[in-house]
Amino acid sequence: MPNSTPPRKRPTSVVSSTVSDSHTWNLVYMQLLLEEMGHDVVNLGACVPEKLLAEECLRHEPDLLVVSSVNGHGFNDGLRIASHVRSVAGLEHLCMVIGGKLSVDGVRDVGFTRRLLNAGFDAVFGDDELPAFRSFVEVCGLRVSA
């Protein structure tokens, strides 16, 4: 769960795509955005298998995991990520969010969003919800002035 005491050092976040998504402009953008919010960012790039994602999280012990996907499989792939990551010892409480263009038809499926939250994401963002994402990062105490 997000914790509200501000961290002393620069927070670390991991930015990652899903296993099937190869788009990377979104990842480059999210990295810059988080760096500007004072984060050290580990960018895992395109097509990240769930196992690799979990290993990298154990290695870097990030304060925040940001999954970004725009290829339309994000809901489906996101469910796989959540169930895997939450099953790994040490990652049960990692703050983790997902966002982007998560379906193929441009609609925000409320049922799917709920399933992603139930499966273990702390927040789910549509492609036009960057302001909400910024506030989320701030409320979690994960923003330091750069």
């Binding site: 296993v19 099937s20 290829n71 339309g72 499989h73």
Partner: peptide, 12 residues
């Protein structure tokens, strides 16, 4: 073709 086929995950 879809992204699962592209990445070789035909099971998905």
């Amino acid at each position: 073709l879809d992204s699962y086929t592209r990445t070789g995950d035909h099971e998905a």
